[in-house]
C-alpha cells in the first residue's frame, strides 16, 4: 500500500512537472528530497557536517600542497626554529616611491639596502656538505653524529 502510494505520488509529481513544461527530477533530487522529508533536521545537520569536512579537506590539501606548511613554524617540533626567526621593524626599511632624487636620497636608500643585504649574509647558504655521510653519521665508525645545522 505504501509503495503504491509513493509511486502514485511520484507519478503525480511527474505529470505536474510535465504540465508545467518542466523537466522531470533526476534520481539525485528525488533521493535528496525524500531523505530531507524523512529525517528533517538530523539530515540537515549531517549535510552541514559533511560540507564542513569537505571544506576542511580542501583547505588542508591546499595548505600542504601550496607549500605554506613548509613555512609554518607553529607546527609541533619547530619550537627551536621559531626562536631563530628575525624580528624586523619593517617601517624602518620603507623607502618612499615618490619625491625627488638627490645625493641624500640615494645615500639613505643605500644605507637601508646595505643593512638588509648584510642581515641576509648571516643566514645559512644551504651548503651541500651538511648532508654528507660523515655529518649524518653514516660511517663505519660509530661516531656521534654532528648537527651541522646553522648556528
Amino acid at each position: 500500500m505504501t509503495i503504491l502510494a509513493e509511486r502514485k505520488k511520484a507519478l503525480v509529481h511527474k505529470v505536474k512537472h510535465a504540465a508545467q513544461g518542466r523537466k522531470p527530477d533526476n534520481w539525485f533530487t528525488r533521493l535528496f528530497s525524500r531523505l530531507a522529508q524523512r529525517f528533517g533536521l538530523p539530515f540537515g545537520i549531517l549535510l552541514a557536517i559533511l560540507a564542513a569536512l569537505l571544506l576542511t579537506a580542501i583547505s588542508m590539501t591546499l595548505y600542504f600542497a601550496s607549500g605554506t606548511s613548509k613555512l609554518d613554524l607553529s607546527r609541533p617540533g619547530y619550537e627551536s626554529a621559531r626562536g631563530q626567526i628575525r624580528q624586523t621593524d619593517g617601517n624602518n626599511q620603507n623607502f618612499s616611491a615618490s619625491g625627488d632624487i638627490d645625493n641624500e636620497v640615494i645615500k639613505d636608500f643605500l644605507s637601508k639596502y646595505d643593512k638588509e643585504a648584510k642581515d641576509l649574509s648571516q643566514y645559512s647558504t644551504f651548503n651541500e656538505s651538511i648532508l654528507g655521510d660523515p655529518q649524518l653519521g653514516i660511517t663505519e665508525q660509530q661516531t656521534t653524529p654532528s648537527d651541522g645545522a646553522n648556528p
Binding site: 613548509k70 626554529a81 641576509l120 643566514y123 645559512s124 651538511i130 649524518l136 648537527d147 645545522a149
Partner: peptide, 16 residues
C-alpha cells in the same frame, strides 16, 4: 640529525 637540519632550514628559509 636530518630532522634537526630540516627544522633549522625552515627558519633559514623564512628569514631569507
Amino acid at each position: 640529525v636530518l630532522q634537526r637540519i630540516q627544522h633549522n632550514d625552515a627558519a633559514t628559509r623564512v628569514n631569507r
